[in-house]
Nucleic acid binder design. Sequence first.
DNA 1: ATGATTAATACAATAAAAGTATTATTGATA
DNA 2: TATCAATAATACTTTTATTGTATTAATCAT
Lengths: 295, 295
Amino acid sequence: MDIKALRYFSVLAEELHFGHAAKRLHISQPPLSRQLGKLEHELGVKLLFRTKRQVSLTPAGQVFLDEVRGILASVNEAANAARRAGRGEIGRLTVGFFIGATYSLLPKILHRFQTQSPGVRLILQEMELTQVPQALVSGEIDVGILRPPVSYSTIETEVLLREPFVAAVPENGKFSSKKQLQLKELAEEPFVMFSPGPSVLYSQIMSACYKAGFRPRIVQEARHPETLLGLVRSGAGIALVASSVQMRGSGGGVLFKKITGPLPMTEIAIAWRHKNPSPLLLSFIKNARSAMKLR
Amino acid sequence: MDIKALRYFSVLAEELHFGHAAKRLHISQPPLSRQLGKLEHELGVKLLFRTKRQVSLTPAGQVFLDEVRGILASVNEAANAARRAGRGEIGRLTVGFFIGATYSLLPKILHRFQTQSPGVRLILQEMELTQVPQALVSGEIDVGILRPPVSYSTIETEVLLREPFVAAVPENGKFSSKKQLQLKELAEEPFVMFSPGPSVLYSQIMSACYKAGFRPRIVQEARHPETLLGLVRSGAGIALVASSVQMRGSGGGVLFKKITGPLPMTEIAIAWRHKNPSPLLLSFIKNARSAMKLR
DNA sequence: ATGATTAATACAATAAAAGTATTATTGATA
DNA sequence: TATCAATAATACTTTTATTGTATTAATCAT
């Protein structure tokens, strides 16, 4: 059975006249007769009563017509859906991200993307920073938000955000009145610090301190910035955190102080499998790029 | 776009291998490549990534595949629905009938038909006996239940039921103790009678009485048997009604007496437009015929 | 590097569809 | 009642589309 034949039948059922229907279909009348005959033969059912003088739908034809209209509509829809998917306008994309991305970057990107591509279903998965590249390689996620570097050659990354560290100090501590600090002022302070394993921040902060001429005294470690802030609030020590953490405010008890002088920036990047990027993925990357270019 | 191409794509999406898919489709590999290429060209979207080494669905292909599976299923369903409609197994049939058919004949026919053809939607319309043939001719109903004769040449009828008249007498009247009556015993009785217009029963009863040697004294007329029975109950007179009216019992107050001797039977027939009977109609007629043959 | 695998391409053969001309049937009209 | 006009079906030819066979080109594994 051929969609063309279904179209012929559909038009014929509207016109109930072979000549007129043929004209509408831009073919001559005999092929129409033959195609309908073939269709009926294939179905084993007469779809149209036809005398030489008038044509009308049989009950079977009426039933078939209802179905055929649905099918023809579906065919158009299927084609359109495929085209839209081809342009990345619909589909589903799984995004894996580490906790640090939730402070400022992710909300901006997601909001913009959902506004621009409402047909796309985004699936969000928070995970440890180190797991993001693995999840990408395994195909568990389609796009990752992480801190570089990434050691897989099949993964491409692009930095979206470059942010300085700030010092998080207790509200009533000795630094509370200062507007800004020099890094070496913190040399004698007890540090609460990201765990060395999952986050690159550990090594970035350590090397920054070395350059400032001291080796920080680490009194406690934590994996999540929220936990670090909690420790600072409780007076366990001071912490260096990425600037965007300020966004969350963390509910008071902690002050953030800008650090003067040379201090490495930390980066957040978007990452994806280099091979065969889908249009949707490309559209997401582009969106992320321009969302972050805004400031 | 061709259903054949959709089938090709669907199989190809399952196999993800042109050679294997072609084998399953009983064609060679090149036509498959070309058909897919054509389909993609038509859609303007790549449906499959294909290197020389591996084939996989693009996001657009995934979306299209979901749609195509639905379409292929619909096509099969449409074909089956048309075939079933062709055999009269599904569809809709409008039945017009006069009140007298509701006592015994219609319930039997309908019950049997609904059991046998559960896919058919029956639409029932009660109407005056005289309107049934008109409704048939106008196409308002597809099949009628009526009392012959019918004067339209385009209408065919077939008698389903032949039933005698019985006398309906008041419960406490002078005939209440009798088992049966002779028609001429009723010669002096007041009659309540069907109206001459809509029902053939009037003339049938009148001519029966003439043959029995009297002209009935009609004290009241009514169009519906229920009304006649009400009049009998109230003592207005006696009535002759079709035997099947007994089925309704009519809630007491009335006794039915068999009438001995020659008495015309009255008939109920099924009627339909002679031209182009649908399979459903034929199936309904056949059903009615055998439902009434049972007794 | 070499060979096996596999999708695409070239070209010929086959099949299907469409077009033109004609026929047969049926209402309408004179 | 005969004739005409309308119209779906059929016959036959031409055109178009599809398939098959043979071959090519690219890629992965050894």
